[in-house]
Amino acid sequence: MDEQDELRVGLQWVGDLISPPSPANQILIMADSPVVGSTQADSHVLMFGYVSPPAVSGDLTPQQVEQLISQPLPVMPISRVVLTTPRLREFRDVINKHLAQTTGEV
């Protein structure tokens, strides 16, 4: 099928669309391992997670500050997806378009 005969099919999201979405405040993006013989990755792993900030009340002593920063806070994974490089670029473009429409910025 050549480009002139391109078939466009509509999409409809299905599934559980009424449960509240999980909040995410951490994002990690990593390049996947490149294909043998290539120097660039052709896919990317996106991980979304949530970390609860430590409960702190009042002024902290230097010892409490040292204790807080001595150990990393655990990030609870919410979602992991793998995108090809073209799909990652498309994702970037969709985010930019959304921000331009909703906030006036890119």
Rank of each mutant, 00 (worst) to 15 (best):
D2Y: 06
D2C: 08
E3G: 07
Q4F: 12
L7S: 10
L7N: 05
V9S: 06
V9E: 10
V9H: 09
V14G: 12
G15F: 05
G15Q: 04
G15K: 13
D16S: 03
L17P: 02
I18W: 08
I18N: 13
P21G: 03
P23E: 00
A24T: 03
I27S: 04
L28Q: 12
I29S: 04
M30N: 15
M30E: 15
A31F: 07
V35G: 05
V35P: 01
T39S: 14
T39W: 03
A41I: 01
D42S: 14
V45E: 06
F48K: 01
G49T: 01
G49D: 04
Y50D: 12
V51D: 05
V51N: 10
P53R: 09
P53L: 10
G58N: 04
G58K: 01
L60G: 11
P62T: 10
P62L: 13
L68A: 01
L68M: 09
L73R: 12
P74I: 11
M76C: 14
I78N: 06
V82R: 14
V82E: 07
L83P: 11
P86S: 06
F91A: 15
R92M: 08
V94H: 09
V94F: 10
L99C: 03
A100T: 12
T102P: 02
T103H: 13
G104W: 08
G104Y: 01
E105L: 13
